[in-house]
């Protein structure tokens, strides 16, 4: 396997190329960025209106919701801007586009995930950062924690996407199902965790890691502590390990040809 230095250089070159490719058509790129930000803004008015009538819901006020929303937007933005390929993995697997990547001397998952940067991600990042700063919940330690929390949430999201899309290795055409499962994770991250009680709460920190995308990073920003940092770090590592092992297993199944094979 390649050395760390070579891999890091490759990864940076890959993301740079992918972003440049996304920006190739300037007009379309700008439109996607701006409209995604506007999109987030419009949706947030729901909370603004609701909370103007009901200022506190289960311990969350508007500022808390804004922080949560901003964190999730930031995490998703980074996930789809830097590792946009993870969102299309099921399609790539099913269409046999992995072949060209497998034949090259670089880790296949990294390669596949780094393709296809999504311009909308930048819109998410910008609107996320704006919402976080307007929330008034950022601890004085500030910016580095916000970035770290966003990165952590992004990593968990990418791992989620990889996990959901790896089903394609065994089940064939899972693109729309995989995508919907990812959106479910996103959806659950956006709503205050205190809404959910009992077994639901457990699910949010395991099978659907929504708690590690929204709640925990938000906590880290609001009241940074060693506990939240370690919990978040552990979650990032755990999900990454699970996702890459499942992918590796899937790749092995792919190589032995036991899928909906088409061949000439």
């Amino acid at each position: 396997m390649p050395g760390t230095k070579a891999t890091v250089r490759f990864a940076t070159a890959l993301v740079r190329t992918s972003v440049r490719s996304a920006m190739a058509e300037r007009g379309a790129f700008a439109m996607r960025v701006v409209l995604m930000a506007v999109n987030n803004g419009i949706f947030f008015t729901f909370w603004i209106v609701l909370m103007s009538r009901v200022p506190r819901i289960r311990g969350y006020s508007l500022g808390d919701v804004a922080l949560l929303y901003g964190v999730v937007a930031l995490a998703n933005g980074v996930a789809v801007f830097v590792a946009g390929g993870a969102q299309y993995l099921a399609r790539v697997i099913h269409d046999g586009e992995l072949d060209a990547l497998i034949a090259q001397p670089k880790p296949t998952l990294l390669y596949a995930a780094g393709l296809r940067s999504q311009p909308s991600g930048l819109g998410d990042i910008v609107s996320g950062l704006i919402m976080i700063s307007l929330s008034g919940r950022v601890a004085p330690v500030g910016i580095p924690i916000v970035l770290a929390a966003g990165a952590a949430g992004a990593m968990v999201l990418v791992s989620t996407a990889v996990l959901m899309h790896s089903a394609a290795f065994w089940l064939g055409r899972t693109e729309s199902a995989s995508r919907q499962l990812y959106e479910v994770t996103l959806m659950f991250s956006l709503y205050p965790d205190t809404l959910f009680t009992g077994p639901m709460r457990w699910i949010l920190f395991t099978a659907i890691p929504a708690g590690f995308v929204g709640y925990l990073p938000a906590e880290a920003i609001r009241a940074p502590s060693l506990w939240t940092a370690s919990a978040l770090g552990a979650a990032v590592v755990a999900y990454a390990v699970v996702a890459s092992s499942v992918f590796a297993r899937g790749l092995r199944a792919y190589s032995s040809g036991s899928r909906f094979a088409t061949f000439t």
């Binding site: 390649p2 070579a6 070159a13 190329t17 490719s21 996304a22 190739a24 090259q104 001397p105």
Partner: peptide, 19 residues
Amino acid sequence: LWYQLAPRDTIELLARVYE
């Protein structure tokens, strides 16, 4: 080859792939 970019960009990336 990356569709939206020039061949030179793909080649620069390949240089990194093949170290």
